[in-house]
Amino acid sequence: MSFFTLSMLQTALEQGCILSLVTLALYISFTTLNLCDLATDGTFTLGCAVSAQMALTFLGHPFLALLAAMAIGCLSGFINATLQTKLKVESILAGIIVNTGLYTINLWVMGLGTSGGFSSNVNMNKAITIFDLAKDVLQPMLGSWYKLAVLAVFALGAALLIKLFMGTRLGLSIRATGDNADMVRASSINPGFTITAGLCLANALTGLAGALQSQYQKSCDINIGTGMVTIALASLIIGQTLVGRRGGVGRRIAGVLLGSCLYRIIIAVALRLNMNANCLKLVSAIIVAIAIASPTVRSAIALQRQKAAARAAKKGEETHA
């Protein structure tokens, strides 16, 4: 058996596609708007839970489940944005508040239809998912790759739409809001509105990612989104390292897709090296810390080298004299 099989790559890419939607959401909130959306974890779980319940019970259509998860994600983003823009709650704090509140809401959504009213997981074995629908059409052509095909359509479609959106009046306004607040205030742009629109869009993407995740693994539990913000941040930074900081929107979004897939591949390799699955979150945390700190560390090392060289040169002069 080879070290890294094709099926492992396939699984990593599938998960990378789902992750890329969350990373895209962080590209909007973190990179573009310069805000910390700490409600990402909760919104992801919310998307999972809503999608699971919709696919299982209400109406029972998996596509409707995706739309519902996006709408609910959007609502969560709206509440987060309202706290920040209307009630002047600090962005990090607003995210934490929403995230905490979502924990209970997620338990409640997953518990709908059960006797207790609250539940920490949902089993979707009986539900029809979009992958079941796609299987009939795509499997004869693509074999086991049909899941990846479906997910790639979502990931690439979302990436393309966001790329186009960033060139529109609203997209440009959102970018300017995070880039130069002074300019925005003197332009005919209402920063409260652009922040709200940006967070709604980002959380709709996170909700969609959660919805796809639950249909992909046919289950949902309360911890499914834990650490998602760190993982997405890691992907964002890996992508940024790959395509460069100064690139245009197209390049940066390509970096989002690449970074997300690469992150999943790195993790797959780490697991292959017999890493305990419980260590995953620690590994992601370390990757993020290293990636963010590396430019600072690099310039500090360069400075020390320069100092040492200058000292050596001075010593040389003294011995000559």
């Binding site: 060139g167 440009l172 970018r175 300017a176 880039d179 130069n180 300019m183 003197a186 332009s187």
Partner: peptide, 16 residues
């Protein structure tokens, strides 16, 4: 520095 967005391109600033 107040009137333009530094991380957006010249064309994007003009477009906005």
């Amino acid at each position: 520095l107040r009137g333009t967005a530094p991380n957006m391109t010249i064309e994007e600033n003009l477009a906005l």
